[in-house]
C-alpha cells in the first residue's frame, strides 16, 4: 500500500473539507478564501463544494472576525482565516477581549466555538511587517487555546480538534511549513490541543521547539546522528503550555535547550526555561536559541543570520554536550526558501 503524502496546505484543506461535510454549521470566512488557490491553497475548491458556507469578505478584519465570534456565540462553528498575523491584530478586540473572555466573564456555559487560523512567521521578501509571529502575545491571553502545527499530520489533526472544541482556538500556522510533505491519514482524526508531544526519545538533553523551529530541530538531529542522545519535544500548544511533559523530560536528561523562531524576549523559550527552572530540574544553564530582538528585515544578506538553522542547532547541542562542532555550509535555497522535504 503506497503512502498518502500530503502537503501541509493540503492537509489543512482536507481537514476543513471533512469537518464541513460532517457539520453543516461550519463556515469559512476570510480574504480570498473563495479563490481557486484560496488561503495559500488551504481553502481551494471549498466554495464550489459548499457554496453557501464559504465567504470572501470585505477587508474589514475587525468586523469579519467579530461577526464570526457572534455567530459562534449563537452556536455556529466558524473558521476565520487571516493571511498575516499583522492583519489579525486589527481584530485584537474580538480575539483577545471578546471571544477569549466570553465564557469566563458570563460565569460559564457560554461557549464560543470559533477557530481563527493565522499564517505567521518567516517567508522570503516579506520584511518587518509581514513576518512577525507574536507567539508570546497570543500565548499570554487567558481564555484562548493556541496551537502551532509543526507538520502536515499535526495540521490536519489539530484543525479538526479545534473545530470540534467548544472554546476559541487560534491556530498559528508557520507559513514556512506550507510546502512540507508527510503521510497524512485519510480519515478524520484529532490531535490533542493542549498537549506537547515527544517526537524522539533521548537521554542526554531535552530539546524543545515548535512549528518551523521544530522542523529545523528535526534536521539538526539527523546531522548529529549518534553523537548525542537528544529528546525532542514538539510543544504543540502555547496556550496552555504543557510544562508537565517538558519537566518530565528534563527530570530525566537534566539539560534543556529551546529553539524559538521569534524574539528571545517574551518568546516561548523563556516561558519553557522558567517552568523548568521553577521545577528545579536543571543541572546546567539552559540554552536558548532564538531570533534577535530586532524586526526581520527583507534583504537575504540580513535574514541569513536571523533564524536558528539546523547547523546552528546541531552545533549548539554538541557544544552543550562538550563535543566538537560540525562543519556544514548551507545553500542559498536551504537558508531562504521554505523546505519542501517529506517528513517521516
Amino acid at each position: 500500500m503506497s503512502e498518502r503524502i500530503l502537503k501541509y496546505t493540503e492537509a489543512l484543506r482536507e481537514a476543513t473539507d471533512q469537518v464541513m461535510a460532517q457539520d453543516s454549521s461550519v463556515c469559512v470566512f476570510g480574504l480570498g478564501v473563495t479563490y481557486k488557490n484560496g488561503a495559500d491553497g488551504t481553502t481551494g475548491g471549498l466554495k464550489q463544494k459548499y457554496p453557501t458556507r464559504v465567504f470572501d469578505t470585505p477587508v474589514s478584519e475587525h468586523a469579519v472576525t467579530g461577526m464570526a465570534v457572534g455567530s459562534a456565540i449563537s452556536g455556529m462553528r466558524p473558521i476565520v482565516h487571516h493571511g498575516r498575523v499583522e492583519f489579525s491584530l486589527l481584530a485584537a478586540d474580538q480575539m483577545f477581549t471578546q471571544a477569549a473572555k466570553w465564557n469566563y466573564m458570563f460565569g460559564g456555559n457560554h461557549p464560543v466555538p470559533i477557530v481563527i487560523r493565522i499564517a505567521v512567521g518567516r517567508q522570503w521578501g516579506n520584511g518587518p511587517q509581514h513576518t512577525q509571529s507574536l507567539y508570546g502575545m497570543f500565548g499570554s491571553v487567558s481564555g484562548l487555546k493556541v496551537v502551532i502545527p509543526s507538520s502536515p499530520r499535526m495540521a490536519k489533526g489539530l484543525l479538526i480538534a479545534a473545530v470540534r472544541d467548544p472554546n476559541p482556538v487560534v491556530i498559528l500556522e508557520p507559513r514556512w511549513l506550507y510546502a512540507l510533505k508527510q503521510h497524512v491519514p485519510e480519515g478524520i482524526y484529532v490531535e490533542n490541543l493542549g498537549k506537547a508531544q515527544v517526537v524522539q526519545s533521548g537521554k542526554d538533553i531535552t530539546l524543545v521547539s515548535y512549528g518551523d523551529g521544530l522542523v529545523s530541530a528535526r534536521e539538526a538531529l539527523s546531522i548529529i546522528g549518534e553523537k548525542a542522545s537528544v529528546e525532542l519535544i514538539d510543544l504543540v500548544s502555547i496556550n496552555p503550555v504543557d510544562h508537565e511533559t517538558v519537566i518530565a523530560s528534563v527530570s530525566k536528561t537534566k539539560r534543556l535547550m529551546v529553539v524559538d523562531t521569534t524574539h528571545a524576549s517574551f518568546g516561548i523559550g523563556s516561558e519553557i526555561i522558567a517552568g523548568a527552572a521553577k521545577a528545579g530540574v536543571l543541572s546546567s544553564a539552559p540554552v536558548h536559541l532564538s531570533c534577535p530582538d530586532v524586526p526581520c528585515p527583507t534583504s537575504t544578506a540580513l535574514t541569513e543570520d536571523y533564524y536558528p538553522t539546523k547547523v546552528i542547532i546541531a552545533t549548539t547541542i554538541l557544544k552543550a554536550m562538550g563535543k566538537a562542532p560540525i562543519e556544514q555550509t548551507l545553500s542559498f535555497e536551504e537558508l531562504h526558501l521554505a523546505p519542501s522535504i517529506t517528513l517521516p
Binding site: C27, H62, A63, V64, T65, G66, M67, A68, V69, G70, S71, A72, I73, S74, G75, M76, P78, D93, Q94, T97, Q98, W102, F106, H110
Partner: peptide, 24 residues
Amino acid sequence: FVGSTPILAGVVPLACGVAFEQKF
C-alpha cells in the same frame, strides 16, 4: 439577552454575527 460587553463598538460586529446566524 445575549450579553453586554463594554468595549463600546466591539458589540457591533458581535451582534452582526448573531444576526448572521438568524439569516443563515
